[in-house]
């Protein structure tokens, strides 16, 4: 893939693609690959910020409507402690909900994939519940859990739950028939088939769901905080909106984005460790 990216760039500049075998050393090839993966998106970011900054200045837009990137960056000074407190609150709710929701989803997926009768009984309900907007449940969750972080955690967990459940069931069932026959021939128990074959087979699909849930978990936490919290980045955005403090609003948005990016990278690192066998090509 790295080679493909590099070749595409070279062909854009008119130079013929270099065959991978001619690359001098693996290390330098990888670092060049990393650079070519990072430079284009970074360039887009820079261009975007420059356009934004100049537009605000040229059009003389008022700060409450759209502050310039430099104004946003400058406004962070003196606000770090406050921002960190709200960021921590949101991160805690989101991560807790993420772990609980995905944890339950994977356990239930394993049970449903292994036991046909359980799957038949539950799957239609799971599909029906998936279409239910979790936000609609928020008032109920508040009645149950009070004004604590738990209604927010519960909403986050529910949002994460269904996509992972569906992916998990599919993943655990995607082992091909011949592999199952091989395991039967070797007299493997049901538990061994699950552990030795079905779990590794499902891992790519499970990680796909875990990556999608990062974004869902943050939606759950932020929306949950809108409804029932005195803390967190969601709460902060509501306050900022009430006071038309657009700079505060942007700081909160930046903080959410930072959580999302760091979190996603952590999950991605776990994924590439769990699936390290996929990276060794021919």
């Amino acid at each position: 893939m790295e080679t493909a990216v590099r070749d595409r760039q070279r062909s854009r500049t008119g130079a013929p693609p270099i065959p991978a075998a001619q690359s001098p050393r693996r290390g330098s090839r990888r670092s060049r690959g990393l650079a070519s993966a990072l430079v284009p998106p970074a360039a887009v970011l820079v261009v975007l910020l420059v356009v934004w900054e100049s537009a605000v200045r040229l059009l003389d837009l008022p700060t409450y409507l759209l502050p310039s990137p430099s104004a946003i960056a400058g406004s962070f000074s003196g606000e770090w402690g406050e921002l960190a407190r709200h960021t921590r609150a949101t991160a805690v709710s989101a991560v807790l909900g993420y772990l609980i929701g995905n944890g339950f989803a994977l356990v239930l997926a394993a049970v449903m994939a292994e036991f046909r009768s359980v799957e038949n009984a539950l799957y239609p309900w799971m599909l029906a519940l998936r279409s239910l907007p979790v936000v609609a449940l928020a008032p109920l969750l508040i009645i149950w859990f009070g004004f604590t972080i738990w209604p927010i955690v519960a909403a986050t967990a529910l949002i994460c739950f269904f996509p992972t459940l569906v992916n998990g069931i599919q993943g655990f069932k995607s082992t091909d028939e011949t592999t199952l026959q091989l395991m039967r021939g070797l007299n493997a128990s049901r538990g061994e088939v699950f552990r030795l074959v079905k779990v590794p087979t499902a891992t790519p699909m499970i990680f796909a769901a875990l990556k999608i849930s990062v974004a869902s978990a943050l939606v759950g936490a932020v929306v949950g905080e809108w409804i029932s919290s005195k803390e967190g980045l969601g709460y902060l955005t509501i306050v900022a909106s009430n006071y038309v403090d657009t700079l505060l609003l942007f700081r909160a948005i930046v903080a959410v984005a930072v959580i999302a990016i760091v979190w996603f990278l952590v999950v991605q690192a776990l994924e590439s460790w769990a699936l390290r066998w996929q990276r060794t090509g021919r």
Binding site: T178, T179, L182, M183, L186, N187, A188, S189, E192, L196, V197, P200, W277, Q278
Partner: peptide, 20 residues
């Protein structure tokens, strides 16, 4: 029908991961 996440050695040893 090899398990792609296992090395050649681990694939050949698969029968010994089955306790029964």
């Amino acid at each position: 029908v090899l398990l792609p996440w296992r090395t050649v050695r681990e694939n050949v040893l698969l029968p010994y991961d089955i306790s029964r």
